[in-house]
Design a protein around this nucleic acid. Sequence first.
DNA 1: AAACATACCAACCGCCGCCTT
DNA 2: TAAGGCGGCGGTTGGTATGTT
Length: 270
Amino acid sequence: MGRAPCCEKMGLKKGPWTKEEDVILMNYINQNGHGNWRALPKLAGLLRCGKSCRLRWMNYLRPDIKRGSFSKEEEHTIIQLHEELGNRWSVIAARLPGRTDNEIKNVWHTHLKKRLNKKSEPNSPMHSSSKMSSSTTVTAGASAVSNLPEMDESFWSEVFSADNSSFDQTTDKKSEPNSPQHSSSEMSSSTVAAAALTQLPEMDVSFWSEVFSAEDSSVTSDISAANSVQIPLNVIETSFAFDSIKEDGMDFWYDLFTRSGELIELPEFE
DNA sequence: AAACATACCAACCGCCGCCTT
DNA sequence: TAAGGCGGCGGTTGGTATGTT
């Protein structure tokens, strides 16, 4: 068919997103939704292609994204679903609320695949087919399942214990959504950041606390500045299926807080 | 302390399927 | 029916962090 590349490279930005861009994108989508990704960057005033905006939103900024490391149950689920479905990450992601296909794909390639390979290496009738990858179809997946040695509790506990160190490592790193890799510029305006915080109470707190720490603590006290941005919460609430999000979100935060004793006091939302 | 290797993950690229005209 | 536009998906890459020598 021959289509034009998604972003006519003219002056469009690539690479890591800055916090300013994140805020702009979030504010825009909160206010207007994302009817047309292609048109969105122009309307929002971003020098990005629509695809890039969509990806950023889907994989990172959506309020319902669950942060933190994958639980054993989640990893278990991924492994099982991958056996059934192959590399259909979006389908797998649909079964793991709050997880993105990209995230799952990454976890698979960095942890789970290795773990399984390690596990099955000695006499590997099953996964030595490290080629199960791209061409894996549902039927192939199904046949793979039938070839599997029965995976009882001991199998899974071995799989998980095989690489526990990395499992734990991910906990710390993942809890920081805007990874340190990003040499992103600091927030230019504490007002914007504070506004975003108040608008999105369900947003990943560590994200915003990082934003604020970049400024300094005075920012949090400057939270009244949030009033300068007029995005009523009800707009946000109608933009998303907030009810379900809230439920998942609360569980997530409760879990997160109870597990990390060292967590600092959060800014108070009023 | 420096150099190198490895792990991790956000983001890009290109293809595909669906929908509209 | 074909062409074109768009969103979405999966593979891959590149930059940074971390570990090892």
